[in-house]
Nucleic acid binder design. Structure first.
Lengths: 148, 148
DNA sequence: ATTACTGCAAAGCATTTGCAGACTG
DNA sequence: CAGTCTGCAAATGCTTTGCAGTAAT
């Protein structure tokens, strides 16, 4: 196992400077990142990787199911997170737009069914939304939180 | 209750031609629609509503939690569906991008917890993805489906 | 009458694409 | 060396915004 091998390098993808760098960043992060923030992190470490390349790299990972792409409800920017093959979800604060990892996911121990009717379910994306502690205390004074 | 009242017209929003028309379309549909497709449907029925207005109308509904906005993983276009306050989810086919309502949601009877740590959960967006029957049979011949 | 909403045009911005050169296996 | 990937530039297209006129309460 040479230095390039990661826990689960997507099969069939060549190692390149850009892909290795993006993968390394994703492995370090626990929260989903936008393509832009990945790009900025790369610049900070003086890796010359173009933004369009970041997108292409991420797309290739998504295609291999090594990365999960999702778009928070209140945003127009997609976020990407390493598919850790463990149950892990995030909640988005509708107040300050921060993302918070959810510890006790209510769905944790319920496996998705393999099929539903004629549809073969491969995976799921769950986005929880609500208020982080700070914003909740702020919003209590103005209006009641909407229902689910 | 006059003819304008719908089952749950978002409180505080005025009735207008555009809003009524968009709401009527959303009530008819069981699948989420893009702003563009709503716009096209409006044109077909000779309602002169601008695309930017459709966006504004949808945003106002989302803000009132009358409509749920989400962005399918494999798309860059947001889709909008009436928040029916019943448990209803959709699956996206990664093959042909079609959306299919899921009958037997594994999460159906599990209520989301009200809080998780210091985060106050208000609702959730679940996107299931996989293969519709047609695409599944097609993909079986090429490569094994990726794991969740 | 006052305030909120919409037509319309134009800008904004995340993402994609094309092509020639560079690099990986 | 063949095929894939990336630098770079430019386009694409979804979505937002500004403003003045219009409509709702």
């Amino acid at each position: 196992m040479n230095r390039h091998d990661t826990v689960q390098w997507p099969e069939g993808l060549k190692h390149t400077k850009s892909r290795d760098a993006v993968m390394a960043l994703l492995e370090k992060e626990t929260l989903p990142l936008t393509a832009l923030s990945l790009f900025e992190k790369l610049q900070q470490q003086n890796a010359s990787v173009w933004l369009s390349t970041v997108y292409r790299v991420l797309d290739s990972f998504v295609e291999k199911n090594a990365v999960q792409k999702s778009t928070p409800t209140d945003s127009t920017m997609a976020v990407y997170a390493l598919n850790r093959h463990t149950h892990m979800h995030y909640a988005v604060c509708v107040g300050c737009h921060s993302m918070v990892p959810i510890e006790n996911c209510p769905f944790e121990h319920i496996p998705a069914p393999l099929t539903d009717g004629d549809f073969h379910i491969v995976g799921h994306n769950l986005e929880l939304y609500g208020y982080c502690g700070k914003c909740f205390r702020k919003s209590e004074k103005k209006e009641p939180a909407p229902e689910s």
